[in-house]
C-alpha cells in the first residue's frame, strides 16, 4: 500500500549564508505498510517522526529516497501529476482545526477534497457525501451548517477524520491523533479508527509518543531516535523483547498503570 525506501531529509538552518548547521532529520528510513495494517512510529519530539509523515505525504521534499503510494513512485512527481493520486493517502492532524477555515461551514470544509478529486459532483451530491461520511464518524447531520468553533476536542477529531476520509483514501497518516484528548474521548476516537479500518480495510501510519496507545492499535512499530529507525518489528516483539538500548530506555520510562508498580 505504502512503502518508502532510504528516505533522507536534511534541514538547513541559517539561511543562504551557509553558516547555519545542517540537521539530518531523517536518515535512510525504510518501511512498508500492507493493506489493512497499522504501522506506528514512536520517538521523542525531534526524533524525526513528524518529518517522516510530511515526507510521505509529499508535503515536504525529500533529499533522497523513494516513496510508493500503492504501485506508483511519487517522490519525484510534480504537484500537477501528484494531485490525482493524493486521494489515495490522506492525513489527520493532532488538531485538525488548525487547518480549517473558521468562516467555512463544516460541510464545506469536510467536502473540500471532493471539489478536487470528484469535480463532477453537484453541490447537493457533495453535501450528501459529507453527511454520509460524518455519520460514519459518529456525527449528526445537524452539524453540517455549523462553523468550526464551538466543537469539543473529540468532535473536532471526528470532523478531521471525516475530512480525510471524504476522498475514500486507502491510507491514513495520523500524526498524534489522540494526544490532545481526554482518556475517555481518546477511547472513542481509537474505537472509531478501528471500526473504520476494518470496514474499509484502511492502512494507517500512526505517529504517537504514547506507547500504551501504540501497543493498543498497531501491528508493527518503528522506533525513531535522532532521525534513525533504531528498531522495527511486530508490536508484541518490540514491547516484550526490545533489542535496542534506546527502545529499552523508552519502554522503561512508561508511566505505571498501578501505584504498586512504582519504581
Amino acid at each position: 500500500m505504502l512503502s518508502v525506501e532510504k528516505l533522507n531529509k536534511i534541514y538547513h538552518s541559517g539561511g543562504l549564508l551557509r553558516r547555519g548547521q545542517a540537521n539530518h532529520a531523517v536518515k535512510d528510513v525504510s518501511f512498508h505498510i500492507a493493506e489493512g495494517e497499522t504501522v506506528a512510529i514512536v520517538g521523542e519530539s525531534g526524533s524525526g517522526k513528524s518529518s517522516v509523515a510530511r515526507l510521505v505525504m509529499r508535503l515536504l521534499p525529500a533529499n533522497s529516497g523513494q516513496i510508493h503510494w500503492r504501485d506508483q513512485e511519487v517522490s519525484q512527481l510534480s504537484e500537477h501529476h501528484l494531485r490525482p493520486l493524493r486521494s489515495h493517502i490522506q492525513m489527520v492532524f493532532q488538531d485538525p482545526f488548525a487547518s480549517l477555515n473558521p468562516r467555512m461551514r463544516i460541510w464545506q470544509s469536510v467536502g473540500e477534497g471532493l471539489r478536487v478529486h470528484r469535480p463532477e459532483l453537484s453541490r447537493t451530491q457533495r453535501r450528501d457525501e459529507v453527511a454520509e461520511i460524518l455519520a460514519l464518524c459518529g456525527m449528526d447531520a445537524a452539524i453540517l451548517d455549523r462553523y468550526p468553533h464551538q466543537f469539543s476536542g473529540g468532535q473536532r477529531q471526528r470532523i478531521g477524520i471525516a475530512r480525510a476520509l471524504i476522498v475514500r483514501p486507502k491510507v491514513l497518516v495520523l500524526d498524534e491523533p489522540v494526544s490532545a484528548l481526554d482518556v475517555s474521548v481518546q477511547a472513542q476516537i481509537l474505537n472509531l479508527l478501528q471500526r473504520l479500518q476494518s470496514e474499509f480495510n484502511l492502512s494507517y501510519l500512526f505517529i504517537s509518543h504514547d506507547l500504551s496507545v501504540v501497543r493498543h492499535v498497531a501491528d508493527r512499530v518503528l522506533v525513531m531516535f535522532n532521525g534513525n529507525v533504531v528498531e522495527q518489528g511486530s508490536v508484541e516483539g518490540v514491547f516484550s523483547d526490545p533489542k535496542d538500548a534506546y527502545t529499552q530506555k523508552l519502554l522503561a520510562a512508561r508511566p505505571v498503570a498501578h501505584p504498586s508498580e512504582r519504581r
Binding site: 482518556v183 475517555s184 477511547a187 472513542q188 481509537l190 478501528q194 500504551s212 501497543r215 492499535v217 498503570a257
Partner: peptide, 20 residues
C-alpha cells in the same frame, strides 16, 4: 471506574475500548 477502564494499557491490544 469508567474513566480508569478507558485506558488502553489495561485493555487487551486491538479490542474495542470501553467508553463513556
Amino acid at each position: 471506574r469508567a474513566l480508569m477502564g478507558c485506558r488502553p494499557e489495561i485493555n487487551p491490544p486491538g479490542t474495542p475500548l470501553p467508553v463513556i
